[in-house]
């Protein structure tokens, strides 16, 4: 009985985090982006500095008509948002927040699980792009596919580098083995992992698949209402997951002063800082062209991640 309650509580907690943190990131993006552009951003919804803007957006999306184009592949079209969103929920379950089992569910090969499931999320965009029966959606879907191919590799390689350093695939195990000098040691890998993650989330400046000035909104062109909102939520959930993963793998998760009692705060603070960087990059840089995107992945990130693996291996052999 107690075990069941424990599992239910953990799942509810993960669900709450999954529903709240992306909205927080979204609201922060509204405000931070506005101030970086000399604006104020939302000021009315909710009364105080527009804190309820995303709630209002959600209500608006819920009121909209749910449209499926006549020529669309109905079931795939309707399933795509769920496929895009749910993987991030699954990933959140295994991300350790604090020491001593402060995690939804410990998975031994957590790193493999996380990377595999995150790859599934991109399938949602592919399904949407194909099922919409719209040339812009198809173009967006194909660009998503090309981007997935290019950036999954450096992401896996750098994650492998961390796994080599820690000697385990378990996420809590990796954080347990962390020492402060891992961050400079794995710095290149961390940057590559973060960049590749951004590209996989199709965040600016890697948002060629949804380039609104060229192909309307890529794979999501035909979506309205709640399904569209789910795609947007998936993007922000993806930011949370990416930042949390980068924190766990490269920034030492809960490690920091007083990590014994307030370790989970450290994880959240580091995640929030990375989320800020995600927003900051979006405001600062223009979109990369499709060929630049591919060039960056194949000629810069993959060589860098291979070099990181070599460095990790050499250091590992030297210190053992």
């Amino acid at each position: 009985m107690n075990d069941t309650l424990d599992v239910v509580l953990r799942l509810v907690a993960v669900l709450v985090v999954f529903l709240v943190l992306p909205l927080l990131v979204g609201q922060t993006e509204h405000k931070v982006m506005a101030h970086m552009q000399g604006r104020l951003g939302p000021m009315y919804a909710g009364g105080f500095h527009g804190w309820a803007q995303l709630v209002a957006d959600g209500v608006k999306f819920a009121q909209k008509e749910d449209i499926v184009p006549a020529d669309a592949d109905r079931r795939v079209f309707q399933l795509a948002p769920a496929v895009a969103l749910l993987p991030y929920l699954l990933v959140l379950i295994v991300i350790p927040v604090g020491p001593d089992g402060f995690v939804g569910q410990t998975v031994d090969a957590g790193l493999i699980f996380v990377l595999a499931v995150m790859g599934v999320g991109v399938l949602g965009s592919l399904m949407a792009g194909w099922a919409s029966a719209n040339k812009f959606s198809l173009l967006g879907g194909l660009r998503t596919a090309a981007q997935l191919m290019a950036y999954e590799l450096p992401m896996l390689l750098t994650a492998a580098s961390v796994a080599m350093a820690a000697g385990t695939l378990s996420l809590p195990g990796i954080v347990d083995g962390y020492h402060w000098w891992w961050t400079p040691w794995q710095l290149v890998g961390g940057v590559v992992f973060f960049t590749a993650g951004l590209a996989e989330l199709q965040r600016p400046p890697f948002d060629m698949p949804v380039a609104d000035s060229e192909i309307i909104f890529g794979a999501y062109t035909e979506y309205t209402g709640l399904r569209f909102a789910l795609f947007l939520l998936a993007e922000y959930a993806g930011i949370v997951v990416l930042c949390a993963l980068t924190t766990v793998l490269f920034l030492g998760g809960w490690h920091g002063p007083w990590s014994g009692s307030a370790g989970w705060v450290w994880t959240l603070v580091k995640t929030a800082l990375l989320a800020f960087v995600v927003i900051w990059l979006r405001v600062s840089y223009p979109r990369l062209r499709e060929d630049q995107l591919q060039k960056l992945a194949w000629t810069v990130l993959i060589p860098l991640s291979l070099a990181q693996i070599a460095l990790t291996g050499v250091v590992k052999v030297v210190i053992s």
């Binding site: 101030h35 970086m36 552009q37 000399g38 604006r39 104020l40 900051w280 990059l281 600062s284 840089y285």
Partner: peptide, 20 residues
């Protein structure tokens, strides 16, 4: 790239120009 980041960060710390 660093310059671009600096510009946006500096703008964030300045007063906004929005007229309410």
């Amino acid at each position: 790239l660093a310059k671009g980041l600096a510009v946006t960060l500096r703008t964030m710390t300045k007063r906004t120009v929005t007229a309410q």
